[in-house]
Simulated assay, not measured.
Amino acid sequence: MTRAEPPIRVLVCDDQGLVRAGYVTIFAAQPDLTVVGEAGDGEAAVELARRLRPDVVVMDIRMPVLDGIAATRLLAGPDVAEPVKVLVVTTFNLDEYVYEALRAGASGFLLKDSPPADLVAGVRTVAAGEALLAPAVTRELIGRFGSRVRTADRATPEPAQPLTAREREVLTLIAAGLSNSEIAAALVISHETVKTYVSRILTKLDLRDRVQAVVFAYRTGIVSTDG
């Protein structure tokens, strides 16, 4: 008999009590998820995450004391020795903050009006070490704000190992929000080959996941924001 996998430990962070209660109810109904704590502001979220070491932190952006972007940077930023996986949950009217949340180290984002099944799937995806990017939202958000951020980040260094033409092509499709399966279909290559390319791209650029790859592509101008 195989031993059952331990449940995914989730920390819920939102300043609205009803929202937190809703998340807790959704997660509690899943046999593979367990809520280990709740926080109503970013400072409490950071303290609890560092102490409890959850598998995933579900993080709101607008919170008192310390906002979700700053909290995410403290938990998952590039200078954090042992980063915690963060799933940002936001609304469209906060979309200009999402790019900054991704740059701060978030493993992905969802919209607050996403169905409960998508929220659960998102937690599982992030816990598994994969990045969660909704393709349509990715194109709209990063496309809208990428040029402004790229202007501010002109000093971004070139990678030590330059990408091949095919790797740049794959990166462009990642930045467009395509999944591995969609990239495989677009380039007429196997799913495993795409995974190999993605791994090489992340290694060459010293990036943690697909989210950071998307940010890099727009920040450095590899992908144009004007189509």
Results as ranks from 00 to 15, higher is better:
94 L>Q: 15
74 L>T: 02
143 G>E: 04
64 P>T: 09
130 E>M: 12
89 V>G: 02
111 L>T: 09
119 L>F: 13
72 T>Y: 03
127 A>I: 02
137 V>A: 15
120 V>T: 12
65 V>R: 13
86 V>P: 05
145 F>P: 02
134 A>Y: 02
139 R>E: 11
117 A>T: 15
92 F>H: 15
81 A>T: 14
84 V>W: 00
117 A>C: 10
145 F>S: 09
134 A>T: 13
117 A>I: 14
147 S>P: 08
87 L>M: 11
145 F>E: 06
140 E>C: 05
66 L>G: 02
108 G>L: 03
98 V>N: 03
102 L>I: 07
128 A>V: 08
126 V>S: 03
144 R>T: 15
146 G>Y: 02
133 L>C: 09
133 L>R: 01
146 G>R: 06
112 K>V: 04
94 L>G: 11
121 A>S: 14
67 D>Y: 04
134 A>H: 10
143 G>V: 08
97 Y>K: 01
71 A>N: 08
124 R>K: 12
109 F>R: 01
80 V>L: 10
68 G>E: 04
70 A>P: 00
88 V>Y: 06
126 V>Q: 01
63 M>D: 05
97 Y>V: 01
114 S>Y: 10
144 R>A: 14
122 G>C: 06
88 V>A: 04
72 T>N: 04
79 D>V: 05
67 D>L: 06
84 V>Y: 00
84 V>N: 02
145 F>A: 04
138 T>S: 07
146 G>E: 08
81 A>R: 14
91 T>L: 12
103 R>S: 03
134 A>P: 00
68 G>Q: 00
107 S>Y: 10
78 P>I: 09
148 R>K: 13
66 L>W: 01
119 L>V: 15
91 T>D: 11
84 V>P: 01
76 A>E: 00
109 F>W: 06
110 L>D: 00
136 A>S: 11
139 R>G: 03
137 V>C: 12
111 L>V: 11
128 A>Y: 10
78 P>Q: 10
85 K>Y: 01
70 A>T: 11
87 L>G: 07
71 A>M: 04
73 R>P: 00
89 V>L: 13
